[in-house]
């Protein structure tokens, strides 16, 4: 990339008002930092809640993310949109937390017994799934639970990419920067995520369409 193009790109980031706020934070403007916290608190907590299913843990993690932003303020260089940088920090935190939760779960499962009984067999999984089959029209609350469970069937990276795509309306390039992946990897990740989601939710589509029509 030529230096002129690089200069244009950097100026593009500088037009992001949150990059401007972060530059003020870099100069120890605490009020600007407060504005960033206000602007991003719900968005961060929303993503963390979908990942962790625990609103208190989501708030703790969001606070940790803001603390990291503050600690890194003097080294901050605007090389991307502020949201991309923030969600990169968020993604690292969520990944570490999920890894630690999974290790803890492994230990507690080993401690509980031989571990074989607590893992559901494919037959049990099939039975659980059949319990959710749309033999009747589900109400909104039940449908919400089905969607939540479907999201949980995705692996951590698919889920994070999908959440950033859906709720943060991020481009593939921004998701790639936030998750430290190539754009092609994000494309594949999102395709698998959408395909898995479709397989999980397809049986409910007719019901939800009827319900939507009824609501209208």
């Amino acid at each position: 990339m030529s230096s002129a193009t690089h200069q244009i790109d950097q100026n593009a980031w500088l037009r992001d008002p949150d990059v401007q706020r972060m530059l003020r934070v870099r100069d120890d403007d605490e009020a600007a930092f407060g504005e960033l916290v206000e602007a991003y608190q719900n968005r961060l907590i929303g993503i963390f809640t979908h990942v962790l299913h625990d609103s208190a843990a989501a708030e703790d993690l969001a606070q940790e993310a803001f603390l990291r932003v503050y600690r890194a303020r003097h080294r901050y260089q605007p090389t991307a949109k502020f949201a991309t940088w923030l969600f990169r920090i968020a993604n690292n935190l969520a990944t570490n937390r999920l890894r630690s939760l999974s290790r803890r779960k492994e230990v507690s499962m080993k401690a509980a017994d031989s571990g074989q009984q607590s893992l559901p067999t494919p037959e049990q999984l099939a039975a659980e799934k059949s319990a959710l089959m749309p033999t009747r029209q589900l109400d909104k609350q039940e449908m919400r639970e089905v969607v939540r469970q479907s999201l949980d069937t995705l692996n951590d990276r698919q889920r994070m990419a999908l959440l950033l795509n859906k709720f943060e309306h991020m481009s593939y390039a921004d998701i790639a920067a936030s998750m430290d992946l190539s754009v092609q990897a994000v494309k594949s990740l999102l395709t698998r995520a959408r395909e898995n989601l479709r397989l999980q939710l397809e049986p409910y589509l007719t019901g939800s369409s009827d319900q939507e029509r009824a609501n209208k």
Binding site: H50, S55, A62, L201, Y204, L205
Partner: peptide, 14 residues
């Protein structure tokens, strides 16, 4: 349609 169903998920607030 399946992507749109994600809108049913509750929006979390601080």
């Amino acid at each position: 349609k399946t992507f749109d169903l994600l809108d049913l998920l509750p929006a979390s607030k601080a």
